[in-house]
Simulated assay, not measured.
Amino acid sequence: MTTRIEIEVDATGATQRLDQFLSAQAVVQAESLSRTRIQALIDGGSVTVDGAKATQAKLKIRAGQIIVIEVPDATPAEPLGEAIALNIVFEDDHIVVLDKPAGLVVHPGAGNETGTLVNALIAHCGDTLSGIGGVKRPGIVHRLDKDTSGLLVVAKTDAAHHRLSRLFADHGRSLSLTREYLALVWGAPDRQSGIVDAPLGRHAIQREKMAVVPEARGREAITHWRVIETFSKDRDGKPIASLIACQLETGRTHQIRVHMAHIGHPLLGDKTYGAGFKTKASQLPEAARAALTTLDRQALHARALGFEHPITGEELLFESEPPEDFANLARALKS
C-alpha cells in the first residue's frame, strides 16, 4: 500500500529546488515527511515531475508542473514486551492511567525501537491491550513528549479506544476532558492569565521543530494559561521565572512549549524552543542553576487528567505531584 500525494506547482514555487518546495507544502507536512525523507523518496524513484522520475533533490521546478509522491506505508516491527516498571494510578478491565516519568518514550519509532511505554504495556497487559492504534501504538490515544512527565491514559479494549479517541479529538469542547500541565517558564507574563490562540505546523526549515504558522498552513492550537507564582528577580528587577498552569483546548505536538515561547516565556530547560534564553541561567540563584542543570529537560509536567470513563460513564479525575527534579528546581527558584 502507498499514499499518493499530487501537487501542482504554483507561481511561488517556480525556480525552487524540488526538495525545498516539497518540504514547505502543507499536504507533505501533514504526512510528517521530513526533508531527509523526501530526499530518500527522490533517490528511490518515488517522486515524479510531469510523469518523469525526479532524479535529484536540487532539480529546479517550474510553475504548472505536476509533482507526484508515492509514499510507501511503513512496515513496523512487532514491538516486544519488556519488564519496565510502571507507576499505575488506576486500572480496570478497560483503561490504565499511569504517571509517566521523564525520559520514557511513549511508542516505538526511529532510534527508539525498545524501552518505550508501549513495550512496557505489552508486557503488563498482554493480549488485552487495544490494537486499534496499530502495531507500534497499541492502546495509545494521546501522548506526552519523551522528556515531559505526568499523567497518561491508555485503552485496554477496542471499545474504550474508540471512545477515548473521540474524547481527545473533541478536546473537551462538548465532552468531559481536563488536561492541566505545570510549567516553569522564563520571566513572567504581564498579566495573571491569558489564552494563546495560534496555529501550529512544522517549522519551515528545522523540520524536527514545530512553529506558529499561518492558519492556512497549520492546525488550530489553543492554550489557556495562568500564573501561579513568580520567582527571584533579574538585573532589571523583574521576575526571572514563573510557575504557570496550562490547560489545553487542543492537543498539538509540543503545543505548550511552542506557545509559551511564542509569547516570550519559553520553558526552563527547553533546548529546542528556549535556546535563546540559555544565558539567563547565569542570573539564577546558585542553587537554581544547579537544579536546572540536574533537570536537563523542559520543565513540564502533566499534573491533572480528568475524563468520563469510556465504558462506565463515571467522572474520573487524577492528579500528580511534579517529580523531584521539577520540584527541586521550583524550590531552588524561591531561594
Rank of each mutant, 00 (worst) to 15 (best):
I42R: 02
G64M: 07
M1L: 14
V118A: 09
L200D: 00
A290H: 07
K278A: 12
K278H: 06
L317W: 06
A287H: 03
Q20P: 07
G133W: 06
A261P: 01
T36Q: 13
L305W: 11
V9M: 07
Q255I: 05
Q206C: 10
I205Y: 11
V71P: 10
H162C: 08
L167K: 02
R235N: 12
D73E: 14
V71H: 06
D296K: 12
I66C: 15
L284V: 03
E82N: 08
S176T: 14
D92K: 08
L177D: 00
S23D: 13
L121W: 08
V49Q: 01
I84T: 10
Q39P: 03
T148R: 04
V28F: 03
V212F: 05
N328R: 04
R252L: 00
A287C: 05
T272K: 01
R217M: 15
K238D: 11
G134Q: 01
H262M: 09
D73P: 02
G131C: 11
T12Y: 14
A261C: 01
R4G: 10
Q298R: 01
L316D: 11
D73N: 15
G51M: 06
A26M: 06
F318H: 04
Y181D: 11
A302D: 01
F318V: 03
S335Y: 10
P214C: 13
A77G: 08
T178F: 02
I140T: 08
E215T: 13
L121Q: 03
T293C: 12
V185G: 03
T116E: 11
L248P: 09
Q298H: 09
R62T: 13
Q39D: 14
H224T: 04
R173T: 04
Y181R: 02
L41E: 03
V153K: 04
I122T: 07
I228D: 09
L329S: 06
P310M: 06
T223V: 12
L86D: 04
R226N: 14
I42V: 13
G274Y: 05
D127P: 14
A290F: 01
A24P: 08
Q39L: 07
D145A: 02
G131Y: 12
L33Q: 02
E6L: 15
P285Y: 04
A188I: 00
L333D: 00
I195M: 10
A211K: 06
E78R: 14
I122W: 10
L167V: 13
I61Y: 13
H301Q: 02
S130T: 10
L164K: 00
P322K: 06
G276W: 05
A160G: 05
L129Y: 09
R252Y: 14
D325A: 11
C246S: 12
K136P: 04
I5F: 08
P108H: 03
R37Y: 12
R235W: 07
A332I: 03
R202E: 01
K60Y: 01
A299Q: 00
Q39A: 12
D127C: 14
D190N: 14
V196N: 00
T114R: 15
H262T: 05
I67M: 05
G45I: 05
H254M: 09
L33D: 00
K280M: 05
F231D: 02
E6I: 10
